[in-house]
């Protein structure tokens, strides 16, 4: 696997508390990497460390297999969670200024901005002050500024918070397109729906520690094989009496004369073993192995 970015054994203490405790992540090239975790888990701290805004107490960072260097800010594009623009400054001028701080010449910046502004229908606003723009337009400008210098690594901290649904869709489309074109993307979120939709890989951080990392399909498969949804024609005795002690009944409900039972297997017995126990005693109409959603996995880990 081609690795673009690695963080190894990152530890960061703030006065009084530990923000990150021995956290390592590996981000494959040209993938979308979800950084998950509840509020206060340490996601933003890790992202700030990757952006070299703050320094870790311990640990090492590698970009393209080389130790991260201050000049690498050029190769990284960052859209922070707390984001804004100078309200009194003109949009175009401000975009050029921020591009210049990334190390692009004013001429290049202007040329590339023109393309992006046209794509997002922002051109008429070039000479307007930022405060005259709607929130949605400001978000578009912020997005353009983040990706303008064609960074290898893009980092979005809670990109969907505060975006309206139209911009969320636009942003998702752009993220997928950017990946297509070769960019690697890290984004932090606690919106699990968008994780399943976009991410290839994830890392889950809880209480300053990494609790889970890997390819999202692998993880979901790993958590599958434990819960089964069974549909029965009828049920006269309690379900527990039909099964041995390796199974636990989570819920039973009746619907349209049918009985739905959710069963948890304590020992990963596999679906056949469960079926074998049931088939002789009741009429099985439906049987389904439940693949947990990222949301369930998330909740399981952080509670």
């Amino acid at each position: 696997m081609d690795i673009l970015f690695r963080a190894e054994h990152i530890t960061k203490h703030y006065s009084g508390h530990c923000a990150l405790d021995d956290v390592s992540i590996t981000v494959p090239r040209q993938r979308i990497f979800g950084l998950l975790g509840p509020n206060g888990a340490g996601k933003t701290t890790l992202i700030r460390i990757i952006n070299q805004i703050i320094a870790p107490d311990e640990g090492r960072l590698f970009l393209n297999n080389k130790a991260l260097h201050p000049s690498d800010v050029k190769k990284i594009g960052y859209l922070p969670e707390e984001r804004g623009l100078y309200k009194k400054m003109k949009v175009g001028e401000q975009a050029i200024y921020l591009a210049r701080l990334k190390g692009i010449s004013a001429g290049d910046a202007r040329r590339q901005l023109r393309g992006w502004f046209e794509k997002f229908d922002l051109m008429p606003w070039w000479n307007k002050k930022v405060e005259e723009l709607s929130k949605g337009m400001q978000q578009k400008v912020q997005f353009i500024i983040t990706v303008l210098h064609k960074p290898d690594l893009l980092i979005f901290d809670e990109p969907f918070s505060g975006f309206d649904p139209i911009n969320v869709n636009l942003l998702k489309k752009e993220l997928l397109r950017l990946r297509q074109e070769g960019a690697t993307i890290i984004f932090s979120t606690h919106n699990m729906g968008s994780v399943e939709e976009l991410c290839d890989d994830i890392a889950l951080i809880n209480k300053s520690r990494k609790v889970l990392e890997g390819n999202i399909r692998d993880i979901r498969r790993q958590y599958a094989g434990q819960i089964y949804d069974v549909e029965l024609e009828s049920l006269d005795t309690p379900m527990e009496n039909l099964l041995d002690s390796r199974y636990q009944v989570i819920s039973t409900s009746r619907n349209n004369g049918l009985v739905q039972v959710r069963v948890k297997s304590r020992e990963r017995t596999g679906s056949n073993e469960l079926l074998r126990q049931l088939i002789d005693q009741v009429q099985v109409i439906g049987f389904n192995e439940h693949t947990p959603s990222m949301n369930e996995i998330f909740i399981k880990h952080v509670t």
């Binding site: 952006n51 070299q52 805004i53 201050p70 800010v73 990284i76 960052y78 859209l79 922070p80 707390e82 984001r83 804004g84 623009l85 100078y86 309200k87 921020l98 701080l101 990334k102 190390g103 912020q142 500024i145």
Partner: peptide, 12 residues
């Protein structure tokens, strides 16, 4: 205005 974090990702 929350622009500071955008800037400090480019400069010290």
């Amino acid at each position: 205005s929350r622009i500071v974090e955008i800037i400090v990702s480019s400069v010290k």
